[in-house]
Design a protein around this nucleic acid. Structure first.
Lengths: 194, 194
DNA sequence: CCACGTTACATAACGCTGCTATATCTAGCG
DNA sequence: CGCTAGATATAGCAGCGTTATGTAACGTGG
């Protein structure tokens, strides 16, 4: 019942339908009380939906297999992140509406840890010289998040994602110390996996 | 009446109070019908509020006086942009909830034009070599937007703004061709005007 | 100066929302 | 088998945005 409600809510979210208590209960063939026994109301359900969104995101990032080029891996992770957001734009926007108070913040941290790990490998490989892996990951994430939200909210056209995301990634990576040309090649390779 | 409703709605937004039709009408001492005669309903009011938000933002950016260092000016514009968002976080978030369909999109474009103009001056001054001013401005904007939203939504701590925004700005500007050291100094100078 | 039509505001009611109190049903276990 | 605890169904609440209707104020042409 829990999973049915969460998945139905997520489905209605991606279908751009208004996720209302009665409509949700009707879709899964139960009554409105189910939301209260399992989630203690709509805010609880939203929390669970956001949680599921971050879980799917972490799952998508985990599918990116590491290579011997950590910068390529970072770019590939960015591409997977963007793909996940573009496939379910409404879910992605809902995730960050109240991402601060997640039922289990660890799920969001797991996805971020993959980024930090790749950045750490880039440091170990001598690509990022004297750079803080967490800071690089954060800046890479923030830049991608900004482009994504501007595109998803319709401020920037869809093409802006492919036009600006790799450039921003390369800018962050070269600022971390990577060689510009080598970085450009790695980013190109990583982003192509989209 | 129009301005009273808009300003009251913006005030309730920054006060984190729920902006409800009856509460809004009660605050300005009128009835609910005023919102319908002037804005044709709540969505229209939200559009006007977002418009006012972008107008205030453009006003804040216009107060940044250009200097002989265009890269410093870009950083200063970024600082003013961030300051505006931090001062009214709820308004900033509301602005981009449906920024695509603004009553008058020109207002948002005016603020962006200031960024593009500074980037153009950087190109003319030889700081940004062979870079598209609009692309640089867009990337700078997107990166700042991402950091801001992550901070405003509580995902990143407040310190992250000062820690990552200048670094991202410098990364974007050096990627545009500016000299790293000179760029770092300009960004430092521009960001200090916060 | 007055009657007019238009505009802005007040009032009441409708349908919908999330939520809760109550009742019913459905296992699980001694 | 009978009992207890948990989950589901039903009905109703206050609140929301919206609308229909009524009323007062305004500017304008005769």
């Amino acid at each position: 019942m829990r999973v049915a409600l969460i998945e139905q809510a997520a489905a209605m979210l991606v279908a751009r339908e208004p996720v209302t208590l009665r409509a949700l209960a009707g879709r899964v063939g139960t009554s409105t009380m189910a939301v209260y026994t399992h989630f203690d109301g709509m805010p609880g359900l939203w929390g669970a939906v956001r949680q599921e969104g971050f879980a799917r995101l972490a799952r998508g990032l985990a599918e990116v297999s590491p290579s011997d080029d950590p910068v390529r891996d970072l770019a590939a992770l960015g591409a997977a992140y963007a793909a996940n957001a573009v496939e379910n734009p409404a879910l992605y926007r809902a995730m960050f509406d109240a991402a601060a108070d997640l039922p289990d913040p660890g799920a969001a941290g797991a996805g971020f840890a993959v980024l930090v790990d790749a950045a750490q490998r880039a440091v170990d490989a001598g690509r990022f010289v004297a750079a803080d892996p967490a800071a690089v990951a954060t800046r890479f994430w923030a830049a991608g998040h900004g482009v994504l939200l501007l595109v998803l909210s319709g401020v920037l056209p869809d093409e802006a994602l492919d036009e600006h995301s790799p450039a921003l990634a390369a800018a962050v990576f070269t600022a971390a110390g990577d060689d510009p040309e080598r970085c450009a090649a790695s980013v190109r390779a990583g982003w192509a996996g989209l």
